[in-house]
Each structure stands twice: as C-alpha cells, then as structure tokens.
C-alpha cells in the first residue's frame, strides 16, 4: 500500500514481479514488502545500535571524564584534560617524531600497518599467481598455505616467541647452520629487531589471506584476453602488466583496505610475543590503550586513546568508501 506510489523507475525485469505483487496483495494482506523489511531488519539494526554504536558513543563521553568504569571512583567531567595529558607537552611534530607513551604507540602502529600491508599485498599477489592454475596436490598446498591465517593470532605469537627465543630458538639455530649468524642473537630483546620480528610474523601470517582474495580476482579475468595477447605475441611479463594488473586493481584495493583496519588494531601479536617491549618498542596503539586502561587503571585516558583510534580508523574507512563505493545497490 505504501510502496506502490513511489520508486517510479524500476528495471523492466522487476516490472513483472511488481504486477505480481499487486495481485498478490489481494490474497495476502498480511505484510507489504516494506512492512516485512521493517520486521526483518528491526532486530538487526537495534542489535547493532546497542552493541556497536552505543559503546562508541559511551567511549567518547567517557574520554571527557575521569574514573570511567569503577564505581568507587565516580565520573567527574574534566573536558579535554585526558587528551591534553595523552598529548604531553612540546610541538606537535616533535611529539609525533619522538614523543613517548601515546606517540610512541602511534608510531609503532603506523610503521606496523604501512610496512606490513604493502609487503603482504606483494607477497600475496605472488602466491595467488602461483596458485592460479590447476596442479596435482593443489588442495593440500592451499590448505597448508592457509594455515598461518587460521591459527589464532595470540597463539601464533607464543609459537614465534619460542622460535625466536634468544638462547634456544630454532630460528637462531637455522641461521647459524646456514652461516648467517655466528652465535645466537636475542631478536626479541632488542628494540629494533623486536619490531622487525613482529613485522616478519604478521607478514608471514597474513600473506596467505591476501593471496586468497587476490586469487578470486585473478580467476574472474576472462581467458580470452590472455589468448588474444598471446596471438599478438605479448610476453608473459607484458601480459601481467597490461592485462592482469589493471583488471586486478579493484580487488587489490579491497584487499589493501581489508587488511589496513585490522593491522591498525593489532593487539594479540605484541601481547603474546613481547608484551609490548623491550622499552615499548612493540607497543601498538591498542596495546597501549589496553595497558592504560587495565594496568594503570586510567579509564579516562584509555577512553581518549580509544576515541583517537576510532577517528583514525574512520579516516581510513573514508578512503575505503571513497575509492570503492559504486552505487549499484538496488
């Protein structure tokens, strides 16, 4: 009843079903499409409003208060005091480049995200190209390659903490055997190598995920394009640059942005691998926030940090929507 008047431009394909719907309504007056849509979507939307949106709102409010959760320390409005205290003192650029606490965590997270994601993308593309053909044992090869992705991040962190162990780790043993090291090296006990190790582990873990998403993109490229190129005598390399890469661009973008938000929120890996150390060298933003909230019990600053993380995540998401959104939802 409501929706017959609106939506004047319908695709011809839908025209038939629309007439059908009108006929139908005489026999079945129970629900119109719109009523049914409201009935089906209300639980989902209210669920998400309660569990996803309300908490964000509450966190933003909390960031303007002290004593955020614990009743023994009642909320007191402090304005932007929490943000000021996270910021510390000094010029912005100086803080960004060498500040500690929040700034250090921001740097770690940015390095972690913007080093690991591009490398994963390139390795994932290589893997996808390798897997994009039929061969014997493909099922098992693919299962093996998917393995790193399936292992829970924090369990993975403990596995690698043992493998990178500075005295008895298998990585040290292997590197000595192939002559790259003379004696065991304490990878996780030095700030620089701890960060590199963490990057190595996340790249190892996530490249396979990238490969799968890219593989789906590769398989959607029609074969006849390659055949035509071969007829024209184009080399394999030429085919890759002129056909594969341009046609894969949308998938590459999706994969890129699909990884950026989780990478920016890394928590389990530093928690299980190094606990954020040594000297905060592997403390990501979320780990820093977690420590602020649960170790130092500073709920106000924790909420302020979470608010900043939300703003950065939304900025990344804007780039996502801006580059990928195509209005084709009917």
């Amino acid at each position: 009843m409501v929706d017959t008047a609106e939506a004047p431009s319908e695709s011809p394909r839908r025209e038939g079903s629309r007439r059908q719907n009108r006929l139908q309504r005489y026999r079945d007056l129970r629900f119109t499409e719109e009523e049914l849509a409201v009935i089906l979507l209300t639980p989902v939307v209210s669920f998400l409003l309660a569990v996803s949106f309300y908490p964000i709102f509450d966190t933003v409010i909390g960031s303007l208060h002290t004593g955020y959760v614990l009743e023994m320390d009642p909320r007191e409005f402090v304005g932007l005091e929490n943000y000021r205290s996270i910021y510390g003192s000094g010029p912005l650029l100086e803080q960004f480049l060498s500040g500690d606490g929040f700034w250090n965590a921001l740097r770690v997270s940015l390095i972690y995200t913007f080093v690991s994601v591009p490398v994963e993308l390139v390795l994932g593309l290589g893997l996808a190209l390798l897997l994009n053909r039929e061969f014997r044992g493909k099922y098992f090869a693919q299962a093996a390659i998917l393995f790193p992705w399936a292992i829970p991040t924090v369990i993975n962190a403990r596995i690698w903490a043992w493998m990178f162990n500075g005295q008895y780790g298998v990585i040290n043993d292997l590197l000595i055997r192939i002559g790259l090291l003379q004696q065991p090296f304490p990878f996780l006990a030095r700030p620089d190598t701890a960060l590199y190790s963490m990057l190595f582990i996340t790249i190892w873990k996530t490249s396979s995920f990238m490969a799968l998403i890219l593989l789906a993109g590769l398989q959607s490229i029609p074969d006849h394009l390659y055949e035509a190129a071969r007829m024209d005598g184009a080399s394999r390399v030429r085919q890759f640059w002129d056909i594969t890469l341009p046609l894969l661009k949308p998938t590459l973008l999706v994969a890129l942005i699909f990884r950026t938000l989780p990478a920016f929120q890394a928590f389990g890996l530093p928690f299980g691998l190094t606990g954020g150390g040594p000297a905060s060298a592997t403390t990501t933003l979320v780990l820093f926030d977690h420590q602020t909230t649960f170790n130092r019990l500073n709920f106000g600053e924790g909420a302020a940090t979470a608010t900043i993380i939300t703003l950065i995540a939304l900025a990344i998401a804007m780039v996502y929507v801006g580059t990928l959104y195509e209005p084709e939802v009917r």
Binding site: E33, S52, F53, G62, I309, T310, Y320
Partner: peptide, 25 residues
C-alpha cells in the same frame, strides 16, 4: 523499501568501528 541504502551502509559501517573503543562500555 525506503531508506534501503542508509540501512545497508549503517550495517556495513559498524564493521569499521574499532573493537577497543567498544570494549569498556
């Protein structure tokens, strides 16, 4: 139905919200 696109974007948009900002509330 009306407001389909906003509803879809609302649902998908929640995927972008950081987990840590939802933890304490």
């Amino acid at each position: 139905f009306r407001f389909k696109l906003p509803v879809l974007l609302l649902i998908l948009g929640t995927a972008m919200l950081p987990f840590i900002a939802r933890l304490i509330p």
